[in-house]
């Protein structure tokens, strides 16, 4: 006798307003079969008990899914999708951020971005974040490999190394601001190491400043990459390694032929995050140098255009252009690294 053959007991009879499945977990959906023949005579139901039962199982499922999705979807539409379409619309106007009127200017804003070297040239300053991001990934991967091996107190090291990522980003920037001061911590350290000839104005020297900032980004975000690598390493099946060691593979061979190929998709994801982060560098120059001319990035310029020069139309167009550039760069990267996932 299957679960559905049992007569409906009052216990699992669906109540009004609770259109839920009635059979025990794991059994076949039986309410579908029951509901078409369900009527007042069969059920001896009290008034108001049966309304929901005229909904089929599928409908109930749909209602359930939709009602669960309602809040996240409403939030997504309100804060992401609607603003995105507004952004596209603004990018074709000369809106000043306040006025109730929007003047349509066509592609004028887009043309301006590419004509103005001060706006577009800022991508040169993003380059240091890009290089920093690559180094950051290599460093994070090495640390993850070390932490995945059997070393003493490895949980302690994992925790310590993850701390920079948990710290408040603005606080981190302030800490480094003090380190980079004239005669600050970094200069004192260099003095003690007998390297005082390397001292410079870390935030004042135009040739150095973007690297100083990129280092902050490196220090703050490598733990994030590291944790992702570590999680991936721990999920690799051990039998492959056993097989490799039985075949007499050296540690380097295991790393090169087993670990790295298996990590390929994770490396790609990390690089994707890093590259888009480099193109969108914002908070560090914004807080540390107030995005002064030699440190302005494309995104700080966008902010400036919107909130200093009150040209929200142009700023919206810049946001769209940045989006397209990120998309193109990531596509190139995927293409270079071979987009398809290779089974090891």
């Amino acid at each position: 006798m299957g679960a559905c053959d049992t007569p409906q007991s009052p216990m699992n009879r669906p109540q009004a307003g609770h259109p839920v499945r009635v059979q025990p977990v794991g059994g076949p959906p039986c309410i579908q079969r029951v509901s078409p023949v369900w009527d007042d005579t069969l059920s001896e139901a009290k008034e108001g008990d049966v309304v929901s039962l005229h909904w089929s199982y599928r409908t109930q499922k749909a209602v359930l899914i939709i009602s669960f999705l309602l809040i996240p979807l409403a939030l997504l539409v309100t804060f992401s999708i609607y603003p995105f379409f507004k952004l596209i619309y603004y990018s074709f106007t000369s809106w000043d951020g306040l006025s109730p009127t929007f003047t349509w200017v066509g592609f004028n804003n887009y043309v301006q971005i590419f004509k103005n070297p001060a706006l577009f040239g800022a991508f040169a300053h993003n380059f240091s974040y890009f290089v920093g991001g690559i180094v950051q990934n290599i460093f994070a991967l090495i640390l993850a490999l070390v932490l995945n091996s059997r070393i003493r107190a490895r949980n302690l090291f994992r925790t310590i190394l993850f701390v920079p990522y948990i710290l408040n980003s603005v606080a981190v920037v302030y800490i480094f601001k003090f380190m980079y001061l004239d005669n600050g911590a970094l200069d004192i350290l260099l003095n003690h190491l007998g390297l005082s000839h390397l001292e410079t104005s870390w935030l004042g020297n135009d040739a150095v400043v973007n690297w100083s900032l990129a280092f902050v980004s490196f220090w703050q975000y490598f733990p994030f990459n590291m944790v992702i690598y570590l999680a991936a390493l721990q999920s690799l099946p051990q039998d492959m390694y056993e097989a490799a060691s039985l075949d007499g593979a050296s540690r380097w061979q295991t790393l090169w032929f087993i670990t790295l190929p298996n990590l390929k998709s994770i490396i790609q994801i990390n690089l994707l995050l890093t590259v888009s982060g480099a193109l969108e560098a914002f908070n560090i120059p914004f807080v540390m140098t107030n995005a002064s001319p030699p440190t302005a990035t494309f995104l700080t310029n966008t902010m400036n255009v919107a909130f200093t020069f009150h040209n929200f139309g142009l700023a919206s167009a810049m946001a769209i252009v940045l989006l397209i550039i990120v998309f193109i760069v990531i596509s190139i990267q995927q293409w270079l690294l071979g987009g398809r996932r290779e089974a090891a």
Partner: peptide
């Protein structure tokens, strides 16, 4: 069946409008 799903969607949308 499809109609019913869409009916559900419509009900959801109506709820959204009410909330809005």
């Amino acid at each position: 069946m499809k109609n019913k799903v869409w009916g559900g969607v419509a009900a959801g949308a109506a709820a959204l409008v009410v909330v809005g």
